[in-house]
Simulated scan of single mutants.
Amino acid sequence: MNQVALSLYNPVLEDVDVIVYDSTLRDGEQTPGVAFSQEQKITIAQMLDDAGVHEIEAGFPAVSENEIRTMKAISDLGLNAKILGLSRVIKGDIDAAVDAGVDIVLLFVGTSEIHRRYKMKKNREEILAMVVDSLDHCKARGVKAAVSAEDTTRTELDFLMEVYRTAEASGAARIGVTDTLGCATPEAISKIVSHARQEVKIPVALHLHNDYGLALANAFAGVKAGATAVTTTVNGIGERAGNVPLEQFVVGMKYLYGKDIGIESTKMKKLSDTVSQLSGLFKPKNQPLVGTNVFAHESGIHVAAMLNCPLTYESIPPEAVGNERHIIMGKKTGLNYIKKRLDDMRIETSEEQATEICKRVKELGERQGRVSDREFTRIVREILG
């Protein structure tokens, strides 16, 4: 379990403290066609908490009365994780979040020129006033609040910084950089976070979408630039192309960047499988870290090397993420693995017999792909008579 072999050139992020606030129950549920029951949400929340996730965004209470009841049930579980609720900069939304028993209200407001004109239908001054009024209402209701600029990455920098300064002056606990359309590069995220860190003293959070496949890279870039909170979802599920995958961010921080953020990586596979099952969303076999193929090997050259040292073709052991190693037999199976399997079965063969068994395995693999243990046993019996 302690043996790892990562790139020799990875930087180490020792002096960073990162909070993960997982949004599987909110943004994850906004995946078209996904609707978790209260029981399912509680199960996922408990598993997230058991893994050590710092904060759980339990939902968007303004959606319905049932959403409020479900979030309240999660809030009443007494979990170690703080419970968060999403809210527009509207008093009714804030009241619903307070009724749901959340620890922190996640306020969001459209700040880009496109959102101001076509969604909010407000000018800059009106947007700033809404931020102030909402934070005042949060204080009046006795609840902490964070402020995220929706569509951050398409917002003019001068106005964006004004939003952040206004939020800080009005008592926000942290401000959020939101790549709503997942259209920013790591360089862009670094620039925005760096500017925000110069403008405000409160923590900077990240909410990043994966439309261009850059959410994870953007999260790492944002953390390196000084962000101290990151939104994730299990398996990266969420609207459109989804979000930063919890399992990839946690394990990446621990092994690629040498920073254990206090979330148990060994519980990622079970979490992944559970969310896949409850959401009804197919999980690819090659899903990074938690897919069934990630630690599966068939190539004879690879397998022969791994029999000597698994680190030849694995940078971390599968147990590090709760996964398992699988050696697959098929058209690419080599003689070394055939001999090992025969030794494991305590079957003695000649070199000629082992070679013939390997040949038959390859032939069957060419016809059907994978050769099962049962089929391998049958081939062995046929060759040995």
Rank of each mutant, 00 (worst) to 15 (best):
H302D: 01
A219G: 14
A196L: 10
S7V: 02
G110E: 05
A81P: 05
G300K: 10
S265D: 06
R240V: 08
V275Q: 10
G280Q: 09
K332R: 12
R174T: 01
I301Y: 10
V371Y: 04
T266A: 14
V250P: 06
K267Y: 03
P186K: 12
K331A: 15
T185N: 05
G369F: 09
Y164W: 11
C183I: 14
N10P: 04
N218L: 12
K285Y: 09
A73G: 07
V163W: 05
L48S: 03
L311E: 08
T228R: 09
V105T: 02
A81G: 10
V63H: 11
G385H: 08
D50S: 12
S37R: 06
S299Y: 08
R378N: 07
Q248Y: 01
A205D: 15
K121E: 08
R88I: 10
V321W: 02
S299G: 14
T153P: 07
A173H: 13
D76L: 09
A62L: 15
K119P: 01
E156W: 01
P288T: 00
T312G: 04
V303T: 04
I19A: 10
N323R: 06
T377W: 07
L278R: 05
I347R: 08
T228N: 06
T24P: 04
G330C: 07
A173I: 02
L77W: 13
E239D: 06
D17C: 04
T178S: 15
T180C: 03
A45R: 07
A229H: 05
M161H: 02
I56D: 02
